[in-house]
Design a protein around this nucleic acid. Structure first.
Lengths: 225, 225
DNA sequence: GTCTATAATCAGATAGAC
DNA sequence: GTCTATCTGATTATAGAC
């Protein structure tokens, strides 16, 4: 019932329609389209939060619609299925990842870049903003594999991170015996690591301590050095 | 539709009943009870397999019943709910873990014991015999927390493994700066590590190679030493 | 205890008015 | 595009005969 998003006021529609009708101009997004995109963003944001909180199977479309404050049928005008909605949530987080990756200084050491990325993913999970999709649901997998925006986003992020992995291995900072793809998967897996939640439930550590703890075990391992 | 289990022949019931009626003796399990337990074992085994394959939410009670070759209503005579069935599957795997732990030679180094346990868990997952329960489902969590056999089994395994962790840390084989509980969680997490499945999908490595690869990253980390 | 048949509920998706 | 109301199918769980 708690709507933590601010939907666009619906009574402003006729006014904006008139304005956009008066203005003739170059190909740009109209206010109407902007409002549409804003609503879609609100939907996807709510879906992301619920996906992080309950996971795909336990999240219901009713909850998403209620959270945004619209009817379920309206939601289905934007997204043809629950799977496509989840895919949109993944595209959104991949977009945020791209923005974050682009903001990183180029001069840092590859290993530090990787650690920074993993920290960012874990913080996102602890903040309840990392949608978690089950890898077992085949219909969801099929939808994701057909989604070009998802595949492109995943590819772009993987190429950037994979490049750092190879550089770090060439420098000898990362174990060169490990296949780069295995390293990539291992880093991605930190984004949905259940250890984060378990440690938080223990109540012995702050979120930052948890992040650094798991980061250490990820890169340095459990054994002594 | 494929029943990979061999249920006890039902036409043997009357005969066994007569035999058990003739024999008076010390308090022992009757054949009837044994048959009942065998059927329950078949149900739990099927549930374990389906839980590993599809996860709790996507597994249906119909599928379990069909897999065992009994009617769904019969299954509900044995287990009062789907959650209790999943709990029984967890109890079963914990029992297998206890048997395995008890079979380990006592003289081995604690660190090697831990690695042996993690190998066993990962092989079980790759064999499709490790039931995976979502940590998000609250009704399932509540059922598990009320299940004494589950809690006892988990406690016993955790105490044995925790003991090895402390010994390994005292010896300096395991990083003493890590909280023992964090190490325990990290080891348990290997039992449901999605990296295993992803690496298998890549098709570049055998199951044994995958196990050793993930084991290395778990204990030695990604960084060079 | 096992079965067939069914109740009860829930969730994804849609129809049709506005 | 948004709404209310509904359909449709799947799923957990149970009733009642044998």
């Amino acid at each position: 019932m708690s709507s933590n998003t601010v939907p666009v006021a619906s009574n402003a529609r006729s006014a904006t329609a008139k304005i956009s009708a008066l203005k003739a101009g170059p190909p740009r997004v109209s206010f109407k389209t902007q409002m549409l995109q804003a609503r879609e963003e609100a939907i996807v944001q709510a879906a992301s939060r619920l996906l992080a909180e309950k996971g795909f199977d336990l999240m219901t479309v009713d909850q998403v619609a209620a959270d945004v404050g619209i009817a379920k049928a309206s939601l289905y005008k934007h997204f043809p299925s629950k799977e496509d909605l989840a895919a949109a949530a993944m595209v959104r987080v991949l977009g945020r990842a791209r923005t974050f990756l682009a903001s990183l200084p180029r001069e840092a050491a590859p290993l530090d870049q990787l650690k920074t990325v993993v920290r960012w993913m874990m913080r996102l999970q602890l903040a309840g903003e990392m949608p978690s999709l089950p890898s077992q649901n085949s219909t969801l997998r099929a939808t994701l594999m057909r989604n070009k925006a998802y595949l492109d986003g995943l590819m772009e992020a993987s190429e950037q991170i994979g490049s750092w992995i190879e550089q770090a291995q060439a420098e000898g900072a990362l174990d060169p015996r490990l296949p780069a793809i295995a390293v990539l998967y291992t880093l991605y897996a930190r984004a949905c690591d259940p250890v984060l939640e378990f440690l938080r439930m223990g109540g012995q550590h702050s979120d930052e301590e948890i992040v650094e703890l798991v980061l250490r075990t990820c890169f340095c391992g459990l054994s002594s050095r």
